[in-house]
Structure formats: structure tokens, C-alpha cells
Design a binder for these strands. Structure first.
Lengths: 346, 346
DNA sequence: AGCTAGCACTCGAGGTAGTAGAGTGCTAAA
DNA sequence: TTTAGCACTCTACTACCTCGAGTGCTAGCT
């Protein structure tokens, strides 16, 4: 695959038409089909010459000599880069999106869960959502709740997200002591991030006597864990059956790998974070993905704002996905989502 | 398919051997293969006669005249019923299970999430878990947390599970009023189920003045929702890539339907609840499942005890799953799981 | 009465051969 | 530089054949 020099206008038009056709049919496209499709105004022979040239440049492949050409990753990349910056959305889709976000009150997690369903209904691809990192989110309340033999550290963030850890308190701690520490925590942690709260707890532990010392150091450990998990725990998937339904994933092994990757939260995290790195929207095509399991797939993702933090949503489909539709859907949903999530915190 | 009369000993042996072989190879089994397999002590001709008879009785099908026989659902059913009541577990598996449950402290949801991974690693099938219904679980703490414009109703159950709902309080409610109600709630809801708490809130709302009346009636609404969602919200899946990897699901459409069903929490709920209805373990084979989407699959599931409530875990695999292995794994994990969850609440 | 060896029969899997047609690259003329 | 024309290539499809796995049935044996 050679370096991607600038394409002539005509090459670009031909490439665009070819990719469009290939996305629709999934069959290698021949020069004749291109000539008779929308007005390129040149004969099939000319197109043949251009196709040979495009192939040499690494944009196309030929399954065999007497077949048409299929796009390479590079071709999809050019195609996507040539798409209009703000593609139009069908009315019915716009309506579905607006309707969804008019719905009942819910917290960020609920909204995101719903968003994945919305996105996969709109696009017929699998969809992903990554909640804004709670690392930057302030704690609204933190407390200890005694349950039988164990105790629960409960942390409520300003976004309405809740995280919790079981901790094992020393047997000699009385209910009153625990309640006292809980009340002190609630006051001093409010408005801080989990990481800062951890430091506060650790420091106070250092200066305290047992059992308070023991309790606070367990709390600090749990807060470390909460801080670390703050990103990973809130990954949502929707419409994964669309992957199994997608005929472009014709090899069993491909299918398996994709499902395996989607099941690893850490993988989804990386995928979404990289794909949504560019505002307002990013597309990762085939081998542009760092994970080999996703080399047969493309990801269209967009970040959304939530207070200071950033979340992201996206869809996963085959290389020959309908990029136009996916981009407009993801983009429109991300915009509405930003608005909805921002509204939550004001 | 005729009624399943009692099988002669020889028919039963032949059937068992055939199913075992078919599970291993996935190919229709012929009389010769059966004769040369483990000691039935009769010739292939005799076996042929028996096979013809078993086919007439509805236990076997023949893809075409010159092929061997494959088991029907009925054959799998007999096979499973013939399996030893308490199948043995391999040492390595027992060790993996014990090791898993020795792990760190976690709440019911975390344990179940981990359990699905454990089960699908052990069996190479997809696995499901359904948390014990919170309908019967007592509330350990309930409170209102103000977040910007909205307010969060937070409910912590004795099992360590947490549920929450955003509610929209009347603008005229002061922080003090909300705090007062929150404190009163915490005291009066402790030890009650969500449904009972709802009644308490509703009744108190009837006797109160605005804004308390408004607040309490919103709380009652949210509690209704929490009570309703108490079962549905805690469904866990693991190892779903195993479904895509399973070559027995050779039709695209089958694969799609299974993924679609597993994505519907309500479907998984029904599936697990029905399959795990019989203690210590239940098996639903193909068309025994109520959902047509699952007619190409089997479910092995077991209930586990959690205080008064019952949860369940299970695996989903092809009709020709290795029932022996699946049953022993599910059973062993369910037993350990019961112990681990019970330990949490004492 | 039940079992089994033997055998004719059936039918799909897999190989070979031939054909149609889609698509190409090249050449020569406009 | 473009294009009509054409020879060439290669797959998909079909028809046909053969092989062999597996059957059901019959006749004889225990």
C-alpha cells in the first residue's frame, strides 16, 4: 500500500461512487457499473484506467482478475473524509431522537443505557456508550451503611451516579463510632473528587487512633478502588444482535473476536476513547483501530460534554457500514445528549 | 413425534451412546459406529433395528436415507434424565470455583458479575445470572440527596444492592424540609420492603400538607418504580462470545435470535426463572423453552438462596451441549454461591 | 424368538468438465 | 487524452459421475 498522495478530482469522484456502490451491494464493483451510475461523464475504458491507477495507489483491491474492485481501508478513509461535514438527518430520525430526550427524568446511567438502544435502533449497528469519568466529578454525599457483618461505603456523585464498596470493619468498632465517622465523611468529602477524598481519609487515618484509624484506612482503600473504577464501570452496550445479523461479518472468527472485544470493558473503553478523541466526531476504520480484533470493523464515535467531564457514544459496524447515516445519527444524538446531561447538573 | 413410552434397557443404552457420540462429533451417528463404540455387545444389524424403532418413537431423525441418525429434543431429554444425579467435577474446576469464592469482599452484584465469568470460563458457554429479587429484601437505608436542580432518592437494601431514582421536587421545598423528610424516611423505612415503604410514604403523603405532601407522593412513585424494577434490573451476562464461536449455531438467523433474546432483560428473566424453577437444577432443552428464539438452544440453570430470596444462574449453549459438564459446573457454582451470599448477610 | 451376516439400494459429498459471462488490460484510432 | 473494440482471464454455475457411508430387508443361525 503506497502513500496516499492527493487524488485528482476525477479519481476522487470515481472512488466516491465506487465506495457508495460497494457499501450498498457488498459486491466488487466493475467499470461498467460505475460508468452507468451517476454522471461521471466518461466511458468505462477511462474508468478502467483510473481504477488500475487507484489500485496501484492502494485504494482498491481485486479479489481476482475478472472481478470488479473492492475498497481498501484507505478508500473508506478517503470516502469518509469526503463526506459533507454535517450530513443531513432524516425527519423520522430527528423526531425519534427528540422524542427520546423529552422522556422522563433519569440519571446519567439510565440515559446512556437508553441512548445505546436509541442509537442501535437508528443505525442498525451495535452501539456503545461510555459515561463521563467520575474522576473529575465531585462527591455529593459519602457515607457508611452497616449491613449485618459488613459495611457499605456509599458514594453519590453530583451527576447522580452511585458507587459503592463493601468494607470489613474491625469488630470492636461500635455503631456510634461508625456513625460519627460517616457524618464527618459526609461533611468533609462533599464537593471533592474521589481522589481528593481518598487523601483526606488517609491523612486523617494517620493522625487517629484505632478503631477510627482502621476504619478510615479501609475507607481510603475503597476510595482508591472507586477512583480507579470510575471510568471502567460505566460502559453500556446496545443492539449487539446487529453484529450477528451483519452479513459483512462472514467469517465466524471475526464475529467471535468482535464479541469478545465488546465484552471486555477495558477494550470498549479504549475503543471509544480513541474514536471519540476528535470533536465533534471521529471515525476509526478497520486497521486504524489499535486492537486487531476490530480490524474488520469500523467505529463511529462522538464525545459529549457533562459538566467538566467528557463521555462518549458510538456505533460499531462492518467496514462497509453506511458511514453517512452512522455519522449523522451519532452526531445528532451526541448533541442532544450533551444538552440533556448538562441540564441534569444545573 | 409419538408419546414417549418407557424405553427398554437396550434402547436406553443405545440412545445414550448415540447422544454421547453426537454431542462429541456433531455428525449423524451410524449403526456401525455405535457397534464398535463401547460394549453394547450386539451387532450393527440389531442396532439398526433398534434405531429404526427409536426413530419411529420420535427420539431420532435422519437427515437423509444414507446418513446416520441425530438426536431430537426428546432424545436429549432422555439423555439428561439418565445422567447421574450428581455428576463429578474435575479437580481443576473444583479448584477454580473454590478459588473464586475465596476472593475479596464484594456485594451481591459484584459476585454475580464475577460468577458469570467463572461459569463461562468453566463451560465455554454463555452464562446468565439473576440477582435475588429485592422485592422481599429489607431496606437498610433510604434517603434523599439534593443534586443541583434534581433530587436523588437512594435506597440501600440489606444485601448491599443499591437502587436510585431521580425525582423532581417542587421548587418551594427548602433544603431543611427535604432533609427532615429524608431523616424521617430513613427511620421509618428501615427493615421494610420497597412495597411496604411505598405504602407508608403514600399514606403519610395523604395526611400531610404541601410541600411535604408533594415530596412524599413523588417518593412513593419512585418506590413503586423501584419495586417493579427490583427483579429486572439485576441481570448479568458473561461469555457471550462463546455463542458466536459455537459451530452448532450454524445458521445466521439462529445466532441473531439468541443474541436478541439475551439482550432483552425480560427474556433472560423468564428463561432463568423457568429453567431454575426446580431445585437443585433444571435443564430446558430446545423447544421446551417458551421462547421460539431459544428453540435451537438449551439452558442449564440452578437457583441459589440469598436470605429469604432466590436468585439463579445458568448457562446457554447449543442443543448438543455437554450436559454433563454444564450440569456439574452450574450445580457446584450455585452451591458455593449460596454459601457466599448467605455469608454476606450474617 | 431374537440375532446377525449379507446384500441391494439410496443418496449426498466431492471430483471433473464444460460453459457463460463479468470484468479486465491493451491497442489503435479519434 | 479519451474511447471503442477485442482478446483474455477467471469464477460461478451446471451437469455428470463415482465413491462410500449407511440403510432396510431377507434368510439363515442359535
Amino acid at each position: 500500500m503506497k502513500a496516499a498522495r492527493e487524488l485528482s478530482d476525477r479519481k476522487a469522484s470515481i472512488l466516491r461512487a465506487l465506495v457508495r456502490l460497494y457499501i450498498r451491494t457488498g459486491e466488487p464493483v466493475g467499470s461498467e457499473a460505475l460508468a452507468s451510475s451517476a454522471g461521471l461523464g466518461v466511458s468505462s475504458a477511462t474508468i478502467r484506467n483510473e481504477l488500475a491507477s487507484l489500485e496501484e495507489m492502494g485504494y482498491l483491491t481485486q479479489p481476482h482478475t475478472s472481478a470488479g474492485r473492492a475498497p481498501t481501508d484507505l478508500a473508506y478513509r478517503s470516502y469518509v473524509d469526503m463526506l459533507p461535514a454535517r450530513p443531513r438527518l432524516r425527519d423520522s430520525e430527528r423526531k425519534a431522537i427528540v422524542h427520546f430526550f423529552d422522556e422522563a427524568l433519569a440519571d446519567v446511567d439510565d440515559i446512556l443505557r437508553g441512548t445505546t438502544h436509541l442509537l442501535s435502533r437508528l443505525t442498525r449497528y451495535a452501539s456503545l456508550a461510555l459515561a463521563p469519568s467520575q474522576r473529575e466529578t465531585a462527591i455529593a454525599r459519602a457515607e457508611l451503611v452497616r449491613l449485618g457483618t459488613v459495611t457499605l461505603l456509599l458514594v453519590v456523585f453530583d451527576t447522580g451516579q452511585v458507587d459503592k464498596r463493601l468494607i470489613d470493619l474491625p469488630a470492636e468498632a461500635t455503631d456510634d463510632e461508625v456513625d460519627g465517622i460517616s457524618r464527618a465523611m459526609t461533611d468533609s468529602f462533599r464537593g471533592r473528587t474521589a481522589a481528593v477524598a481518598r487523601e483526606l481519609a488517609a491523612e486523617r487515618a494517620r493522625r487517629a487512633e484505632d478503631p477510627e484509624r482502621a476504619i478510615l484506612s479501609r475507607v481510603a482503600d475503597a476510595l482508591t478502588s472507586i477512583d480507579e473504577a470510575a471510568e471502567a464501570e460505566h460502559v453500556f452496550l446496545g443492539g449487539v444482535a446487529n453484529i450477528a445479523a451483519e452479513e459483512a461479518f462472514n467469517r465466524r472468527e471475526t464475529l467471535r473476536q468482535i464479541y469478545e472485544a465488546l465484552e471486555r470493558e477495558s477494550a470498549v473503553l479504549v475503543l471509544l476513547r480513541e474514536a471519540a478523541a476528535n470533536a465533534p466526531l471521529g471515525v476509526m476504520i478497520g486497521r486504524e483501530n489499535r486492537m486487531p480484533e476490530m480490524w474488520e470493523a469500523s467505529v463511529v464515535a462522538a464525545p459529549f460534554a457533562a459538566g467538566g467531564a467528557i463521555g462518549s457514544i458510538g456505533v460499531v459496524g462492518p467496514l462497509r457500514m453506511d458511514y453517512g447515516a452512522a455519522i449523522s445519527a451519532v452526531r445528532a444524538v451526541a448533541e442532544r445528549l450533551s444538552a440533556a446531561v448538562e441540564a441534569l447538573s444545573h
